[in-house]
Design a protein around this nucleic acid. Sequence first.
DNA 1: CGGTTACCCTGGATGC
DNA 2: TGCATCCAGGGTAACC
Length: 283
Amino acid sequence: MPELPEVETMVRGLRPVVCGQILRRFEVLDPLLFGDHSAEEVKDRVECRKIQRVERRGKWVLFELEPGGGVIVIQPRMTGGFWLVAPQREDHARLIFHLDGSTKQVWYCDTRRLGRVSWHEDLEATELACDRSQGPDALVIGERELADRLKRTSRGIKPALMDQKVLAGLGNIYADEVLWRASLHPSRRADRLSLLEQQALHAAIRPVLEQAIAAEGSSFDAGYRTVLGLEGGFLAENAVHRRAGEACKRCGELIVKVYMPGLIGRPTYFCPWCQKLKRVRSR
DNA sequence: CGGTTACCCTGGATGC
DNA sequence: TGCATCCAGGGTAACC
C-alpha cells in the first residue's frame, strides 16, 4: 500500500493530534510485528513518555519520544495504516496508541501483517538503521546523486527506482508515473541513460510525488485510507498506473500492462509510444 | 558481488 | 453455494 505520498499523508495527519501528547499506553495486539526488541521491551521504554515529533523517512514512519523514550519506527509495507477514527476493520488493529488529548487513541492496522515495528535507543541509532536499508529520500535526492546511484546498477530503470537503497520512497505506482512523465521505458538499463534522460528522470520525481501528496495518495479496493478513513484521490488523475487499455494523455496510444523480469507479481504500466525501449532509426 | 526468486501474510475478486 | 486460484501500495533472505 503505502509509498512516499501515502506515508507523508499519514504523518501529516498524525502530527497535529499526536505531537506533544503523552503516550499513556502502547497497546500491542500483534507481537509478531516486532523485530530486535520485543513488544514488552518497547512498551517499557515508551509508555508515559511524550511524543515529540512524527517524521517520515522514505516509506517509514518515525515516532520520536522525549529523551529516554527512543524512537518507534513503523514500516507499513503493503497494508499498514493509521486511524484516528475507529478503523473499518477493528480485527486488523495491531497496535493502539493511547493518548491524553482529545483524540484518545490512534490505531495502527495492518491487514496482511507484513508491516514491521522496531525501536531505537535514540535519533542517532535510528539514523543508522535508516541509512542501512535506505538511500536518500526521493523528495530530497539531487540530480547528480541520483545519476551516480543509477550508474551503479545494470538492472532495468524501474526495479532500480523501486530499490529503497537507491532512493527511498518510490514503489510500484509512482515508479510507473515517474517513468511516464520522463518518457522512459521501464526496462531501459539504469546505467545507460543519457545526461538528458537523467535530468528528465530527476525532474519527474518531485512533481509526481507532490501531486500525489496533494491528492492524499492513492486508494483502490479496500487498501490505503487517510488517518480519517478517506480515500486518496491520485488514481483519478494519474497517467498510467492501473490504466491498461486507456489512451495515453500525451499521445493517445493505448496504455499497456506487462510483467517485467525482476518484478515478480508486480505489474508495470506504460505507454509503448511515449516510452520506447529503442530509438527508431530514421532513414 | 549483483541480480533474481521465493516467501512472508491475508482478504477480496474472479472463475469453475 | 462452495472451493480453488489469482491478485495486491513492500522488503528481505537465500540462491545462482
